[in-house]
Design a protein around this nucleic acid. Structure first.
Length: 854
RNA sequence: GGGAGCGUAGCUCAGCUGGUUAGAGCACCUGCUUUACACGCAGGGGGUCACAGGUUCGAGUCCUGUUGUUCCCACCA
């Protein structure tokens, strides 16, 4: 047998163990009809991504579930892959270009996308390599990329299908525009932030010179695009103005005063400027009243169509100038402080501009309806349940999804415009001619699709859809996905409606939603704050197993967690504890085997069996933190503190090994590296732990009479040792000082069977079952009273005081239980096992009182 | 304007379907080279579970309200 070093060294182990798994092909998922399917698709990280703690958390959860199911006999597969991340990746490459003094326009579309592919091929696997450091047991042979051939085919198929069904359309509608990324964004990609702002009150003179109306606005620059002023039809202050016109200051235009319910009477002045091209509400008002549309900003949010003076100005410069000009004209009535919500681009943080623009939209209502149904019916369950409300609420109110992006990196929209007849041809294969008039004068839409359009198809495209593949048949719907709550809208909801629409079934049975990883102060981890913790450094310092346990231990489903690096130390220590326990086991393998199993042997195996049962319940319920806590406690308390200590006075190497291997199996999904390493040593590399069978609860074994007896005996032994150690510590008895022990008990058999342990663990020389002749230090448990003849330490008075205290406590416990049991309500309504437990407690309290009053 | 989470030991957090004396890690105190581990062992101190009501035989756990805090959604310019 190999000598193990005194300390576990993760850095020297993890790479070797990971390679062992790879070489063994253990991650490979095979659609074996003899087994039950278990499948997870990874939330594909961005190709531009660097491993952060969010990934670490997410992937630990997935790996625990996958390893557990794999060991439980499922045909388990975990599909990895990456997302092309349209905006993020394009920005990255454009930044590189800028260093060379170039823009993407200098290269042109083809050369530019080629360059992005180069970048992807060079750096795109970085995040994948980092995931491996965590121990992720993904089936790497199935790694996918959202822009690989298969995924691209799936995207195209979906686009065409939806178009043919009338669920994708092109329209000139108001969208969110990021002037920095120069692309449209979906509603979900806009983050609203409250900001201090101003409410400018501006006078619009009536055309007939009879006065003016005062409007209030937070964005005065948009007045250049005003095409009306609106008031509420019920507003008597302004009813006389309806139908008249006002002169739009700073322009030569005259615009009408209209009436619309949208205007609030109480807010501002009760008069609203209407800018159909730059405000979603105004857009709708404009539709209702057939107002002209005047677009006053270009792609970079610079003024156009605003007159010579303002054209070309940035929107904020224009605002300053316009406010100054209005002031000069005496048309600025007042400025109020006004906090309001501002939409920001979720990628770059730039304030988005609502503008009208011709874009492609997915019609949401017909897709949302069935997606709402499947969750209501429980065909997909959210864990924790509360997230289903967030999901439902979003889908119930969702507006059409703007899917076109003015980027070059992504899935180019398969639509061709005919210059001759204006027809749009949408096709599965690239057309040469217009589908309507046959003209060759056609041009492809330059835009690409929202990145989330392809990730929405992830759970079926990775199995080969639109082909009908055996894998798809076997593993779809997938078992579970594990995203953070921050991507419920982006990803979870869109996967569900896409799965239901294209596969006719939900994409996953369970959406296990987890919280976000925050820093020690509870802040989000952000580059700009510099508070990010690099998981790779943590792994280097403490080991991947320690990092994994840190993420899982003490976390609860759906809740955020603070990452405290120091906590890793605890789990490094835990790993070392297990390591040394294993060392101990292996050092004792050659010892002589006693003929029978002792109570201690039966005790540890019975407890281990129960542990398997209760951990299974927690794992089934996705309570990973609780399961982790239980195996942790078992290893520290039951196995190391007690069983190994028992084994020092009477060792059964077979049981020692049996218990250790059970522990290794149960712990493996959580701490795969160290458990496999120990397993390899313990069994000389003959088998791999990763494909061993996960322990199940055995009810028959649990109910064996010998095991039940062993449990009772060992629990009494533990209580005895604790009581004796406690009293010795209290009296400051030096550890080296041993003494005889007198036991007064009517359950002599209970102690006779464990005398060896009692002597060893409580520093006892001889045991006698009688009252001692001299004054003694005493300790009491319900089953017995103990006397330690440590004459010079005995303080009779102190002993008496201590006994009195204990007695008082025992009496109060007894009385409260007695009262409880005398309560007919309790006896009638409490479940039998609870009543029994109380009766047992009472018996113990009474026994303790008896011992104390002997 | 709606909705949700959180408030438990000095700190970071568990506490699953209500049921013993509310737990863990770190920190703190007292001992200890006990033949696996000082990345250790033994013993110990520390909590009126935010507050107020209610349901119940029984509430940290369920309900209502208050308060603090964080977040999400929403078209009052």
């Amino acid at each position: 047998m190999r000598e193990l070093p005194k300390h576990y060294d993760p850095a020297a182990t993890e790479g070797r163990i990971y390679q062992l798994w790879l070489d063994g092909g253990y991650f490979r998922g095979l659609a074996d009809p003899a087994k039950k399917p278990f499948s997870i698709v990874i939330p594909p990280p961005n190709v531009t991504g660097q491993l952060h703690l969010g990934h670490a958390f997410d992937n630990t959860v997935q790996d625990i579930l996958t390893r557990w199911k794999r060991m439980s006999g499922y045909a388990a597969v975990w599909i990895p892959g990456t997302d092309h991340a349209g905006i993020a990746t394009q920005i990255k490459v454009e930044e590189d270009l800028r260093k060379e003094g170039l823009t993407r326009y200098d290269l042109g579309r083809e050369a530019f996308t080629e360059r992005v592919w180069d970048w992807k091929n060079k750096y795109g696997s970085r995040i994948i390599e980092q995931l491996k450091l965590l121990g992720s047991s993904c089936d790497w042979s199935r790694e996918r990329f959202t822009m690989d051939e298969g995924c691209s085919a799936a995207v195209r198929e979906v686009f065409v299908r939806l178009y043919e069904k009338g669920l994708i359309y092109k329209g000139n509608r108001i969208i969110n525009w990021c002037p920095d990324c120069t692309t449209a964004l979906s509603d979900a990609e806009v983050e609203h932030e409250e900001e201090p702002g101003k409410l400018w009150h501006i006078r619009y003179p009536l055309s007939d010179g009879s006065g003016y109306v005062t409007i209030a606005t937070t964005r005065p620059e948009t007045m250049l695009g005003d095409t009306a002023v609106a008031v509420n039809p019920k507003d008597e202050r302004y009813s006389h103005l309806i139908g008249r016109t006002v002169k739009l200051p700073l322009t030569t235009r005259e615009i009408p005063v209209i009436a619309d319910d949208y205007v609030e009477l109480e807010f501002g002045t009760g008069c609203v400027k209407i800018t159909p091209c730059h405000d979603p509400n105004d857009f709708e008002v404009g539709q209702r009243h057939s107002l002209p549309q005047i677009l006053i900003m270009d792609d970079n949010a610079k003024i156009i169509n605003g007159g010579e003076k303002y054209n070309g100005l940035d929107r904020y410069d224009a605002r300053k100038l316009i406010v100054a000009d209005l002031t000069e004209l005496g048309l600025l009535e007042k400025i109020e402080e006004h906090a309001h919500n501002v939409g920001k681009c979720y990628r770059c943080g730039t304030t988005v501009e609502p503008i009208t623009s011709p874009q492609w939209f997915v019609k949401m209502e017909p897709l949302a309806k069935p997606a709402i149904e499947v969750v209501r019916e429980g065909r997909t369950k959210f864990v924790p349940e509360r997230f289903s409300k967030i999901y439902l609420n979003w889908l119930e109110n969702v507006r059409d999804w703007c899917v076109s992006r003015q980027l070059w990196w992504g899935h180019q929209i398969p639509a061709w415009y005919c210059a001759d007849c204006g027809e749009i041809t949408v096709s599965r294969t690239d057309p040469d001619t217009c589908g309507k008039c046959g003209s060759k004068n056609i041009e492809r839409d330059p835009d690409v699709l929202d990145t989330w359009f392809s990730s929405a198809l992830w759970p079926f495209e990775v199995f080969g859809w639109p082909e009908k593949t055996p894998d798809l048949d076997f593993w779809y719907p997938t078992t579970v996905v594990t995203p953070g709550y921050d991507i419920i809208f982006f990803w979870v909801a869109r996967m569900i409606f896409s799965g239901v629409e294209h596969m006719g079934d939900v994409p996953f049975r369970t959406a296990y939603i987890h919280g976000l990883v925050r820093d020690e102060q509870g802040r989000k981890m952000q580059k700009s704050l510099g508070n990010g913790v690099d998981p790779q450094e943590v792994i280097n310092q403490y080991g991947a197993d320690a990092l994994r346990m840190n993420m899982i231990f003490g976390s609860s489903p759906g809740n955020d967690m603070r990452f405290v690096t120091a906590k890793c130390e605890n789990f490094r220590n835990f790993a070392n504890k297990l390591w040394n326990a294993a060392r101990y086991v292996m050092m004792n393998l050659d010892r002589e085997q006693p003929p029978e199993r002792t109570d201690a042997d039966r005790w540890i195996l019975t407890k281990l069996n129960r542990l398997a049962g209760s951990m299974a319940e927690n794992l089934e319920a996705y309570d990973l933190g609780i399961a982790a806590g239980k195996i942790y406690d078992f290893i520290y308390d039951d196995f190391c503190d007690w069983y190994i200590e028992f084994s020092k006075s009477s060792v059964n190497p077979a049981v020692l090994t049996e218990a250790l291997s059970g522990i290794l199996k149960l712990l493996h999904p959580f701490m795969p590296f160290i458990t496999e390493e120990i397993w390899q040593t313990l069994y000389n590399g003959e088998t791999a732990l990763i494909v061993e069978t996960y322990p199940l609860f055995d009810a028959d074994y649990d109910s064996l009479a010998d095991n039940q007896t062993a449990l009772a005996n060992i629990e009494a032994l533990i209580a005895s040792v604790r009581a004796l150690r406690s009293v010795r510590a209290e009296k400051n008895v030096p550890a080296g000082t041993k003494s005889a022990l007198f036991i007064v008990t009517d359950k002599r058999g209970l102690f006779e069977s464990v005398e060896r342990h009692l002597k060893k663990l409580a520093y006892v020389t001889d045991i006698e079952y009688r009252e001692p002749d001299t004054d003694c230090v005493t300790a009491v448990i319900p089953e017995a009273k103990f006397y330690l003849p440590l004459a010079d330490l005995v303080d009779l008075k102190a002993e008496a005081v201590k006994r009195e205290k204990e007695l008082a406590k025992a009496v109060s416990t007894r009385d409260s239980i007695t009262a409880k049991l005398a309560n007919p309500g309790f006896i009638d309504k409490a479940p039998a096992n609870v009543v029994d437990a109380e009766r047992e407690r009472l018996a113990k309290a009474e026994a303790l009182i008896r011992q104390l009053t002997v």
